[in-house]
Amino acid sequence: MIRSLLAVGALVCGIGAVLAQSDPIATRKATMKKVGEANAEVTKINKGEAPFDLVKVQAALTAMQGAAKAMPALFPDNSKTGGDTAALPKVWETKADFDARWEKLGKEAAVAAAAIKDEATFKVAYADMGKNCGGCHESYRKKQQ
């Protein structure tokens, strides 16, 4: 039983990895969706619509770090168009800057994750995380539809 579960698990992981390679657009969209969903919970806390929740905050920072690691590799040259992508050509024109911004986000999210223990530290350490989102979306993503 355990063996077959492991086999299924390995298969699923394998399919995931293959999908990531064969369809980078779908993968990066799914990755960003995860970040958005996790960050939406934190936005509610920031707006005073939900109580502080350390688990939710850490989940958002984890999602950001995961995206920061995975995303730069998900923009191969053959993924500039198609799949309803919102990525602008500028991603490939200034790929070094694009990648550097991901690295910055990853680092800042890691620092914040280590620093945030409670609501007080959250308010200080999370305050500027959102600027990373806008900074990149301004240059590299089409307007929201």
């Binding site: 969903e37 960050n39 936005t43 920031n46 619509e49 959102g130 979306h137 301004e138 307007k143 929201q144």
Partner: peptide, 27 residues
């Protein structure tokens, strides 16, 4: 109301996304 004023202040939309393109300058 809070969603609108918050987006104008931070660029963060209620779905956890952020505004795109020129709207970043507006923010």
């Amino acid at each position: 109301l809070k969603d609108i004023s918050w987006t104008l202040k931070t660029g963060e939309t209620p779905d956890g996304d952020s505004v795109g393109g020129e709207m970043n300058k507006v923010v």
